[in-house]
Design a protein around this nucleic acid. Sequence first.
DNA 1: TTGAAAGCGCTAACAA
DNA 2: TTGTTAGCGCTTTCAA
Lengths: 346, 346
Amino acid sequence: MTRTGPRGTGFIPVSPPTLADVAERAGVSRQTVSNAVNNPDLLRSGTLERVREAIDAMGYSPNRAARNLRTRTSQLIGLRVSPAQEGTANAMMDRFVHTLVDTSAEAGYHVLLFPGDHGDPVGGYDNLLRSTTVDAFVVTDTYLGNPQAVWLSEHRAPFVAFGRPWDQPGATHPWVDVDGAAGTRLATEHLLAKGHTRIAWIGWRKDSPIGEDRRSGWLGAMRDTGQPTSGLASRVEDTVQSGAEAAAVLLDESSPTAFVCASDTLAMGVLHTLWIRQLAPGRDIAVIGFDDSQVAQVFPVGLTSVRQPLEEVAIEIVGSLETLLGHLPAGPGVLLSPTLSIRESS
Amino acid sequence: MTRTGPRGTGFIPVSPPTLADVAERAGVSRQTVSNAVNNPDLLRSGTLERVREAIDAMGYSPNRAARNLRTRTSQLIGLRVSPAQEGTANAMMDRFVHTLVDTSAEAGYHVLLFPGDHGDPVGGYDNLLRSTTVDAFVVTDTYLGNPQAVWLSEHRAPFVAFGRPWDQPGATHPWVDVDGAAGTRLATEHLLAKGHTRIAWIGWRKDSPIGEDRRSGWLGAMRDTGQPTSGLASRVEDTVQSGAEAAAVLLDESSPTAFVCASDTLAMGVLHTLWIRQLAPGRDIAVIGFDDSQVAQVFPVGLTSVRQPLEEVAIEIVGSLETLLGHLPAGPGVLLSPTLSIRESS
DNA sequence: TTGAAAGCGCTAACAA
DNA sequence: TTGTTAGCGCTTTCAA
C-alpha cells in the first residue's frame, strides 16, 4: 500500500485511512470493522471496543463513494433551486430549506442542490436520477403546474412534493402542503372577533389555484357569519403597486375597515395607500398579509400575517421520504395548518 | 446479469444501464464506451457515433458512485447552513446560493448542504472531509470569527471563504469578499453630491470588524470633503428599535440631513423615526441602508441601499475552487465592489 | 484506435 | 462471532 501523507498526526492524510487500515491496526478482518460500524450488535464487546479505539485513533470514516457503490444508495436528497428571483418566495424557502437540511441530516441524508431553469421544468432531474446521484427528490415549485410530479411519477423516481397536485386530482404521489384557506379564515375570523364586518380581500388572479384557495378561506369566514362580500374582493397581480391600487379602489368604493391579502407583498401595497391617505394601520384600518415574511416582521408598523409552518412541512416531508425509501406504502397527502402572527396592523 | 426492470421502455429501469450494457449494444468494449464519454477525441468518428447512439437509446448516464470511487472525487461542494435565524442575512444568502448553485453546475459541481449548530463552528466539516463526501467547502459565516478557516487550513481541506480573514492577517487561504467601506463611501458621496453635508452614521458596535470597515467608508468620504463628523456617528445593536432610537438622538442633538446605515435593518429604524416625526424620507431627510434587502425594495418609500454583488462573489468563489482543485496556486483574496441601488429615500 | 486486466473501498452472502 | 470471497460500475494502465 502506497501512502503519500503522514498518518495520525492530527492532519488529514492525503489518503484517508480505509477499512483495511483499521482492520490491520485492530488485528481483525475488514469485515469485522465494517460490522463494528454498521452492525455493532454482531461483535463481542471486547472486539467492538478494540475496533472502535482503532477507528477513533485513525480518524476513520467510511468512504462514501465506496459505500454508495456497494449499497446502491447515495443518502442524498435532490432539491432544485429555481433561477434567482428576488421576491417573497425566496425568503420563505430559506426557512424551509434550513429545517429540511436539519431534519434530513437526522435521518442520515444530505441535501443536494441543483439548478433548474424556468424554461424546462424537468431539466436536471433526469440526469441525477439515471446516474443514481440522489436517492430521492423534494419538489417545491409546484405552483408552476407541477409537470415535475408527473414526470417523476412516470419515471418511478422517489419524491415528495411540497404542494398539492392541484392539476391532477388523481395523483398518488406523496405530498405535504399548508392549508391556505385555513390561514385566511384564521385571519378573517381574527378581524371579525375584533368587531370588523366590512373586511376586504385582495388576492391573485383567478388562474392561481393557491390564490383561489386562500380566497375561499376569507369567503367562507365571511359567509359563515353572514357578512356581505360583494364589492369587497379584488384580484390583481402580486406586486406592491397592484396592492396599493386595489386598496385605493376598495376604500373609495366599498369603505372596508380591514383588508386580508393573499401575500405580504399585496399587504405592503395596502399599507402604502393607507400611509398616503394618512390612515394609521391597526388603528384606522386593519391589514393582514400572508407568509409572515421578513418585511412583515421588520416593518415599522408590524404587519399581522399568516405564517406557514415550514418547519413542520420539512419534517413531514422527510418522514414521507423515509417511508418511501424504506419501500413502505406512503400516505398520499398531509395538510398542515398555518398560524397567525399578530402584530400592530390588526 | 440479472435485471428486474424493463429496458428502453421510456421508464427508468429498476437498475439503470451500465457501461457494459452500452458496450454490448454498441458492439464495443466497456473501455471504448468510457472513452466515448470522457475522451471522445480518442475514438474514430464512426465508433463514437455508434456508441453515442447506444448511450442515447438506453438513456445511459455514468453511475456517480462508481465514478467517484474510481476518480477519488465527488464533484460535490459542501456548504454549511447555520441554524435558521430569521434575519436579513438569510435573504441575502439566498441570492448568493442561487448563483453558487448555477455557477458550480457549470463547472461540473453540485452543492451539498449540511447542517451546523452555532455551538460547534467546526461541526460537520470533519466527517464530510474524512469520508471524502465532498471535494471542497465554501465557508460563508466568517463573521463568527472564522474558526472554520483555521481548522480547514490545518486539515488541508480545500475551501474558499466568503469573507476576509479579519482575525488572521497571515491567513493564506483563498477568499472572496465585498468591499464594505467602498459601499458606504459610495453612499456618502452620493449624498454629498446631492448637497448634503451633515450626514450621520448609524453602525454596529465596535467589536464587529465588518461594521468598522463600513464605518470607515463613511468617515473617509466625509473627511475627504472636509465635512465635520463629530456627534454624527453612533454605534448600536443591529435592530430596528436601536436604529430608531439612534436616529431620534442624532436628529435632536446634531441635526443631520441624511443617514448612512450599516444595514437595512438600522435604516428601517431611521425610517420609523422619520415617520413618527412626520418627516418625509427622501424629501426632508435622506436615508441609505446596506444589503439591498427585500425590505429595501418593497418598502413604500423605496430605500436606497448598498448592494453586494453576490452573483459575482459566487462566480469568483467557484473560480477559486476550480483553481484550488486543479492544484494550481490560487491567489489569496479577491475584493469586489458593491453598487448603490438608488431609490426614493435619497 | 481499441481491448484486457486491475483495482478504487466497501458490504452482502456465505463459510468457518 | 469472525473471516473469506465476490463484486458494485467505473477509469487507469498497459498491451495489442
